[in-house]
């Protein structure tokens, strides 16, 4: 067992864990933050995307212990003071989700994309940047619309 401490959604957390604990397991099982999902074993579907130190990472392909000292944001930490994050709002407004399983990873990826590439995103860029997130329900059409709208809305946020 090894000790790990990190800040998750603004709260300091510490635990003793088996070194083989993945970040996603730590979030889901230790912290009961079950909004982060596991959809594959090969680091491709992106349902598990969270932010570590402000950057999107696949929490199924990251050891929890390697995030010692890091700041982690999950889907549960995106809304503040009861107000949805603009990207969350955009997914709802543009019907960017159906079963909802890939959605947390999509939203976390989208927020990271805007953080890196700005608020005006063309369709081609959005589609390329979603390469690591698989959705089986929406055919991506409304996800692309949601991300573009969410990116614009984020310009007026914060």
């Amino acid at each position: 067992m090894v000790s790990v401490s990190m800040t998750v959604n603004g709260k300091a957390v510490s635990a003793k864990i088996d070194p083989r604990t993945l970040l996603v397991q730590f979030l889901r099982e230790n912290l009961l933050l079950t909004g982060t999902h596991v959809g594959c074993d090969t680091s491709q579907c992106g349902a598990c995307v969270v932010h570590v130190d402000g950057l999107a990472v696949k929490s199924c392909t990251t050891l929890a212990v390697a995030c010692d000292g890091s700041t982690v944001t999950t889907i549960e930490g995106l809304a503040h003071d009861g107000a949805l994050h603009p990207m969350q709002e955009a997914f709802r407004e543009h019907h960017g989700l159906q079963c909802g399983f890939c959605t947390p990873g999509m939203i976390m990826t989208a927020v990271d994309l805007v953080n890196r590439k700005g608020h005006t995103l063309d369709e081609h860029t959005i589609r390329e940047e979603l390469e690591g997130n698989i959705c089986r329900c929406t055919g991506y059409h409304n996800i692309v619309k949601s991300v573009a709208a969410g990116a614009q809305a984020m310009a007026g946020h914060k």
Partner: peptide
């Protein structure tokens, strides 16, 4: 390489 999340790690 890979996708954005992979490129961050």
């Amino acid at each position: 390489i890979g996708d954005p999340a992979v490129r961050h790690r």
